[in-house]
C-alpha cells in the first residue's frame, strides 16, 4: 500500500517542481554581477542597503569584469542583471554589444581606486623598484644591447646592483584575472615604453610592442598563483625570497605579515594611492541599466547608497574594506551622474 502511494507520489512531486518553476515571475530583488575586485565593496553596500532601506538585499555574483559585462549586455528584462561591477572601464565593443541587445542607456559610476601591490614577507628584503625593473624582471623577452632576447635575468641584482642578490621569484594572478590585466597595463607597458627602442616600436608596430610588453616570462620565475590573493599572501609568508602581486586590501589586512615594495620611490600606502602618487593603481566602476530603474524596486536607492559620502567618502565604511576614495570633486560628479541617470559617454 505504502509502496504504491510512493510510486504515485513521484510524478506528482515532479509536476509540482515544474509548476513552481513556471511561477517564477517579476523580480523584487536587485541582481548584480561582475568583477571579483569590486565584489567585497559591492557586497558591503548591498548588505547595508538591505538592512537599512526596507528593500530586499541585492544578490551579488562574482563573475569577473568581462563575464559580468557580457551578462549585463545580454538584454533588457528581469532575467538579465541590473548592475555590473567592473575593475576596468567598459570597452567600446561591449557598449556596441549592449546596444545591439537593446541596452542603450547605461549609467557609469566610478567608485574609487584599487592599488596593485608588489609585496613580500616582513622578513624579506625591502625593495625599491622602478617600472622598468619590474618589466625587466617579469617580461618573457627584454631588450639587451639593442636586441630583443629571451629574458636573461635570474637574480634581482642582475638587473640592478642596488637590488638584493636573490633569485627572481614572483607569484601573480593568472591571465583570466582583472588584476593581471591592470598590472600589465599599469606596470609592464610603461616599463617597456621606458626603453627608447620599444617606444619607437610602439609607434611603428603596436601589435609587436604589445606582444613584448604583455607577455610574462614562462621559465618559472613568474608563477601564476591563481585568483585567490589570500593564497599568495600565505605563500609569501612561507617563502621570504618570493614576491607577490595582489590587491591593496590584502596588504591592508595583513600588514603584520607582508610589506609592499616601493614603486618609483613611492610606497603603497592608502594616502599615496588616494593622492595618485603610487603608480600602479586603477579605477573601479559599476554600470547601471537605466531601463531597469523603476522596474526592479530599489535600484535608484542602492545607487544612492553606494555613491553616498558615508560609503565612498574619505571616511566612508568602504575605506575600512580597503577601497581608496576618489577626490571629492569626482565623487560629486559621479553622484550627480547617478542621480540624473546621465548616459555613459565613451
Amino acid at each position: 500500500m505504502l509502496r504504491n502511494s510512493i510510486i504515485k507520489a513521484i510524478p506528482l512531486a515532479l509536476a509540482g517542481v515544474i509548476a513552481v518553476a513556471a511561477a517564477a515571475e517579476a523580480r523584487d530583488q536587485i541582481r548584480i554581477v561582475g568583477s571579483s575586485t569590486v565584489f567585497p565593496f559591492s557586497t558591503t553596500v548591498a548588505e547595508t542597503f538591505g538592512k537599512t532601506s526596507g528593500f530586499k538585499t541585492p544578490v551579488v555574483e562574482s563573475t569577473g569584469s568581462g563575464g559580468g559585462l557580457k551578462l549585463f549586455c545580454s538584454g533588457v528584462g528581469v532575467q538579465h542583471p541590473d548592475i555590473t561591477n567592473a575593475s576596468r572601464r567598459i570597452k567600446k565593443s561591449e557598449v556596441e554589444l549592449c546596444a545591439k541587445n537593446g541596452v542603450a542607456d547605461i549609467v557609469e559610476v566610478k567608485i574609487g581606486f584599487d592599488g596593485i601591490v608588489i609585496g613580500n614577507a616582513k622578513s624579506g628584503a625591502t625593495l625599491n623598484l622602478t617600472k622598468q625593473q619590474i618589466f625587466l624582471a617579469l617580461a618573457a623577452e627584454v631588450p639587451v644591447d639593442g636586441k630583443i632576447v629571451k629574458n636573461p635575468y635570474n637574480k634581482w641584482s642582475d638587473i640592478d646592483k642596488s637590488l638584493p642578490d636573490q633569485a627572481i621569484e614572483v607569484l601573480g594572478p593568472p591571465p583570466t584575472s582583472g588584476t593581471r590585466d591592470a598590472f600589465v597595463e599599469l606596470a609592464m607597458r610603461p616599463g617597456a615604453k621606458s626603453f627608447k627602442m620599444l617606444a619607437d616600436m610602439r609607434k611603428a608596430d603596436k601589435k609587436g610592442f604589445r606582444k613584448i610588453s604583455d607577455s610574462m616570462r614562462e621559465d618559472g620565475k613568474f608563477i601564476e598563483a591563481g585568483e585567490n590573493d589570500n593564497l599568495i599572501v600565505q605563500k609569501l609568508q612561507a617563502n621570504p625570497a618570493a614576491l607577490g602581486i595582489f590587491g591593496f586590501s590584502f596588504l591592508d589586512q595583513n600588514s603584520d605579515k607582508i610589506k609592499g615594495a616601493n614603486v618609483a620611490g613611492v610606497s603603497p600606502t592608502f594616502e599615496n594611492i588616494a593622492g595618485g602618487d603610487y603608480g600602479i593603481s586603477r579605477s573601479l566602476y559599476f554600470y547601471v541599466k537605466s531601463a531597469h530603474i523603476g522596474v526592479v524596486p530599489g535600484i535608484q536607492e542602492y545607487v544612492t547608497e553606494f555613491t553616498s559620502e558615508k560609503a565612498i567618502g574619505d571616511e566612508g565604511y568602504l575605506t575600512d574594506k580597503g577601497l581608496i576614495p576618489l577626490p571629492g570633486a569626482d565623487r560629486e560628479k559621479y553622484r550627480a551622474a547617478a542621480a540624473n541617470k546621465t548616459n555613459l559617454t565613451m
Binding site: V20, F39, S42, A46, T57, V59, E61, S62, T63
Partner: peptide, 17 residues
Amino acid sequence: IGMIAFIVDVPGGFTDP
C-alpha cells in the same frame, strides 16, 4: 547558473536565490 553569489537572506524556497 549564478549560485556563486553573495546572499544575505536565508533562502525560503526553491526559487529564492
